[in-house]
Design a protein around this nucleic acid. Structure first.
Length: 312
DNA sequence: AGATACCCCTGTTAGC
DNA sequence: TGCTAACAGGGGTATC
């Protein structure tokens, strides 16, 4: 289940291997759910990406997108409709991996991977395969528009352009331009569980169930504490704890808890063995040895240590 | 606008 | 042993 560290691991894989390359072809077969947000369907996707040179691989929270250079390199024989001028900036190719999406770098002629939904072959015989077992993920092109705050849109770019439709996704917990005052205000004004607020991608993005539980444990805050009961200092400590766990996880290549997450080379991350609480309900706390508790908060499981997380 | 419920999907696991 | 039911997860949508 890819969260920020897993998506960032993939982003770095792709950035190191795709910059400057051109998308040569796009597989015709796909899964309808994968393209459910693609305006114009696969034909439009094809038109938006084939012949484009990848100029950046960008991430905000759990969303990933590729920017293309301005001039399309159409295969010979295909002509552009000169009645319609190229826009200043081509649409971005956007990915959300959901809980089982994978972006894999493979040989262009290699056989299809399990649950492969799309394949972009590249100018150099490589290909990018998009796989998704549970089809919670999606792929689509979106026009770019200036960011509301004027700062770079996310990790991997200095350009302040965000795909249209992602404006509601807040900056993530590792983003230097995250609006902390807004986060504090959103927490302060809510009676909902702090864990629920952490998972709200419109407040601060990139956090899923794993890193929410781990961050709460690290900052010794119980997940069901009403967000508004926390002091600004506590919220600040919590966000820093989440960020620290994520930076640590990034060094391990992310968390592969149930083998659904692998990097672009098909390799799992190594952070699962470092987890303190997620997936460890009933097992002894690594700090105090007491069995970890598991509760349900707003429909999501939450594992915590009632001894080590005293703030309630 | 915030809270809430529900939906999508499938491989794995728990329980009978 | 073999079946069914529950479960996991993120985010979009609809309703209040």
């Amino acid at each position: 289940m890819p969260e920020l560290p897993e998506v960032e691991t993939i982003r770095r894989n792709l950035e190191a291997n795709l910059l400057g390359k051109t998308i040569a072809t796009l597989s015709e077969s796909t899964h309808p759910r994968t393209l459910r947000y693609q305006v114009g369907g696969i034909d439009r996707l094809h038109r938006d990406v084939v012949g484009r040179e990848i100029s950046a691989v960008v991430r905000r929270g759990k969303f990933l997108w590729m920017e293309f250079s301005g001039i399309a390199q159409r295969p010979s024989g295909e002509t552009e409709n000169t009645e319609v001028p190229e826009p200043d900036s081509p649409p971005a190719l956007c990915f959300h991996l959901g809980m089982s999406g994978q972006l894999r770098l493979v040989e262009g002629a290699s056989p299809g991977l399990r649950h492969e939904r799309l394949r972009f072959t590249l100018s150099d015989s490589q290909a990018l395969a998009y796989c998704d077992q549970r089809t919670f993920g999606h792929v689509e092109t979106r026009p770019l528009a200036p960011t509301a705050d004027g700062y770079p849109a996310g990790a991997g770019t200095t350009r302040a352009f965000l795909p249209v439709g992602l404006e509601h996704i807040a900056r993530d917990v590792l983003d230097p331009y995250l609006d902390l005052e807004r986060v504090f205000a959103k927490f302060r004004s809510s009676r909902r569980a702090v864990k629920t607020k952490l998972l709200d991608q419109g407040i601060v993005s990139g956090i899923g169930n794993i890193y929410a539980d781990e961050g709460l444990f690290a900052s010794r805050i119980r997940p069901f504490t009403p967000a508004g009961d926390l002091s600004q200092r506590e919220v600040s400590r919590l966000l820093e704890a989440v960020a620290e766990v994520m930076r640590h996880a990034l060094e391990f290549g992310g968390t592969s808890f149930d083998k659904l997450y692998v990097n672009s080379w098909g390799n799992p991350g190594d952070f699962a063995s470092e987890l303190n609480v997620y997936g460890r309900a009933g097992k002894p706390c690594h700090h105090c040895g007491k069995p970890l508790d598991k509760i349900v908060i707003d429909g999501r499981s939450a594992v915590f240590c009632s001894h080590c997380e005293p703030t309630a």
